[in-house]
Design a protein around this nucleic acid. Structure first.
Lengths: 258, 258
DNA sequence: CGAGCTTTTGAACGCAGTCAACAATTGTGG
DNA sequence: CCACAATTGTTGACTGCGTTCAAAAGCTCG
């Protein structure tokens, strides 16, 4: 099944390489990984809480989300995932899913058997570190969300979330031209920020009225990045995008990573 | 410096072994890891956001917390750590800290150089998996907190948090006798659940009035676990305490982990 | 063109925050 | 060991941010 203009592997390699520079040999090994393409309809969960998947998922196109639901039926979106992300990478070591993963827009994903990942990590230990780091960076994002949702008022909170999405999309080359494709409903944004859809709508209007964003349908324009950044108190440190390392630092002790 | 009745290493080994059964050889290697004991005064941060530590910390005694602060000065506690936890394990692969870590009570910790961990993981790859899994399990806890703080009302939220603490302390043998030692102030609980100290106080009183908890000073008693569990909608799945695995599953493909 | 989302608007309510003062407890130094 | 300082816990009154409910208006797509 052809699923994207890029091979699934190419996208994954580019992503890992950007986090954690790979050798040609490692790239070659990744290129040969069997990856099964799959298209996801909205409302079709990729994995559900309680399940024990035997493969991981790489997002090729579209947005996905991690979520949990209370017994009262309230949904909290715990993370948004963009193309290049590996949303259920944790299933490698946490055998039962503690949350569900679903598309927020029509998606195309690549599925990779756990065994294949174990195998390649065994041969190339740096890949283990790269993948581990990937899960850590996502944990960092969730922590920032917790600060955001717990301590900032609605206006700041939404501005912050939009800043994050823009930066993360830029990092994978999906926010280069001005109207950014952002296929997320207001209800989903509300579930991600822990507020009601009604209030989300009103605050978005306020952001528009103040000229911080322009938005129609699934598109977002940021006329003045600096103003939005300020409104959202946004500092991209927690995204860990700037950090590179040369693997096992035992070989270059004490080095600073700025 | 003698810091605990147990050797730091023994505690760490017991912890890792409980997550991920170790071989005698691995235990021996861990036993020989150089661990530097240190006592932490309250208000003395272990690491601060922006820093790049060269060692990790194992909690031997006392509670610690991860936190972040908004520019307005509001603190969100992102995680509570109990003895046996490795709160800054992520610094192994994320070179700049995206949050701070501080004691919530007088603490004793063991410090381990990153290089030592790299070295031992290189020789015993199963340890890599064990530590990775440890970071993943903590990420799962933070996700549950996000659901808790974002979607549950104050009463349920606090009940949930107390349930979690009791279960986690039981898991490391620190909640066996009835009055559980819980050296956390109401202000800290408030910062963890994203509410005001005043409201935290009132909800705790409600929990006491309903007979779900008894508490004085730094001690907590749960007269009726089932009632507290129900009030907090608590399901320990997300703690991933029951799961065991036999390392690289490539050797036993398709096995189910119940 | 109509069914079903998604977005928008209005009005009323309520949970939790804020402010301020006081009580209880803990810690500290004389 | 006691007196004083500092922190933590408690109470009351008022406020307000965000929720809820309900209905209408716009879109999207079969």
């Amino acid at each position: 099944m052809t699923v994207s203009s890029y091979s699934p592997n190419t996208l994954m390699i580019r992503k890992l390489d950007s986090i954690f520079p790979l050798t040609d040999e490692e790239k070659q090994a990744l290129q040969e990984l069997p990856v099964q393409g799959k298209a996801l309809k909205p409302d079709e969960d990729l994995v559900r809480i309680g399940e024990s998947p035997t493969r991981c998922c790489l997002i090729l196109e579209g947005f996905m989300c991690m979520y949990k639901v209370t017994s009262a039926g309230n949904r909290q979106i715990l993370a948004l995932h963009v193309p290049g992300d590996l949303p259920d990478l944790q299933s490698l070591h946490l055998k039962v899913m503690d949350m569900s993963i679903a598309p927020v827009s029509p998606c195309k994903v690549g599925l990779i058997q756990h065994e294949e990942i174990y195998r390649i990590c065994e041969r190339y230990p740096r890949l283990t570190a790269a993948l581990w780091r990937e899960t850590l960076a996502h944990a960092s994002i969730i922590r920032e969300w917790m600060l955001n949702n717990g301590q900032r008022d609605a206006y700041t909170r939404i501005a912050h979330l939009l800043c994050e999405l823009v930066v993360r999309l830029k990092a994978v080359g999906l926010a280069d031209n001005s109207p950014i494709d952002l296929p997320i409903t207001q209800t989903e944004l509300a579930d991600a920020t822990g507020m009601s859809p009604v209030h989300m709508n009103r605050v978005l209007q306020a952001l528009r009225a103040n000229g911080l964003i322009e938005s129609k349908k699934a598109e977002l324009t940021v006329p003045n990045w600096e103003k939005l950044r300020e409104a959202g108190e946004f500092d991209p440190l927690y995204l860990h995008l700037g950090e590179r390392r040369d693997l096992h630092p035992s070989k270059s002790q004490g080095q600073q990573w700025s």
